[in-house]
Computed example of a mutant assay.
Amino acid sequence: MGHSLKKSGLRQTRYGSGSFSSTYKFALLISLSRLAIEKGQDSCEGLALEYTDIAEKFIELYWKQAVPYTFNDEGQLILNQNNDKQAEIVNQIIKLRKIYSSLELLRRDSEEWLTLLKEVECTVKKMPVRYLQNINGQNFEFLYPLDQCGKQLILLPQVMYCLRQFSEIIEELCQKRWIDYIRKNSTNAPILNQLPNLEQFMFEPSRNQLNAVASVLVELQECKCFYCNKKMRKGSYAVDHFIPWSLYPSDTGHNFVLADSSCNSKKSNLLASDEFLQKWQERNEEQDLVIVDRISVLGFLTDKERSHKVAEWAYTHAKENNYQVWQG
């Protein structure tokens, strides 16, 4: 199954960008990979995914991209995600961003949030779920059976395991091809052709968001480094993704810790040792309500169980593949 996943699905991503009508297929593959980590386990069983969860992932991915990309200090452009008119999901989010300054504020308006989820669910079912496995006009059901995609999307046996094992490759390829698609899109190309890489704008948290997170963590950690426990001076610390961004490029509030510049630099994109994992889990248990209350309003998902599930996957994955671990 791993061979067929790479041969069929990722080959389509590689050669299909010219025939894709929107970026939805990239978003769907990324969403399935992340949900396999958050909801699944390392087994060869199938996995039933709720469309609500898939829709939430789509909203998280497109929320950041539904604001104008600023270039040359003057021009602005909302990236077109479709070969023709703007992708419908992006249009829906653009309207809501005028009302809600953060994704978490939108989530707190339960009526509006549920309405958006339902609308995105319908679009996901109608478009990328139906066409993701279509190659040259023919469906190859190597990820999920289309005739069973009514109320849930059912990943075929072994697919969950493969998505978890190859998640880093899937993320890297999908993001790269997504960026290429945006850059070459006929409505974006005249402006973006000569501009720097779009990766930071499209997929990474903004510096302002991380600065706001730092202000919360300074109080939470009494301005001490999470790793060495030494007092830090203002400006000498950085927000660290405890589970490195390179392993799981999606932000959750419980994943942030504050580290001094030295520890942050040395840890880099490595996992910290088991003693720090235990300390991080205990911090999240003790400070859960504070994290939910203060970091969620900054626009980050704050789901402790989801964060710990990702950590469980990351550490298991690291041990199986003999990844280097930072000892502190």
Rank of each mutant, 00 (worst) to 15 (best):
S261K: 00
S265C: 06
H254Y: 10
F276Q: 00
K230Q: 15
H241I: 00
K266L: 13
V290I: 10
L270K: 00
N269H: 10
S236W: 09
K230I: 14
D240G: 08
K304D: 11
N284W: 06
L271K: 07
N264C: 01
N269T: 12
Q287G: 04
E282G: 15
E282I: 15
N284I: 07
F256Y: 02
S236T: 02
C263R: 02
K230T: 13
F300K: 02
M232R: 07
K267H: 01
W313H: 06
F276I: 02
H308Y: 14
W280V: 07
A311M: 05
I243V: 11
Q287T: 03
P249N: 02
L258V: 08
L270H: 01
V310D: 15
L258I: 08
E285R: 14
L270W: 01
P244V: 01
S250W: 02
S236M: 12
S265I: 01
L271I: 09
N255K: 10
D260E: 00
E286M: 09
T302A: 12
M232N: 05
F276C: 01
P244C: 04
L289I: 11
D260M: 03
E285A: 15
L301S: 13
Y315G: 03
V257M: 02
D274C: 13
Y315S: 08
R294Y: 06
T316H: 14
D260R: 05
Y237I: 06
F242Y: 04
G235L: 06
H241R: 00
H317W: 14
S273L: 12
Q278C: 12
H308T: 14
E275W: 15
L298D: 09
D303M: 05
L247Y: 07
L271A: 04
H308D: 15
G253R: 05
K234P: 03
T252M: 14
G253W: 04
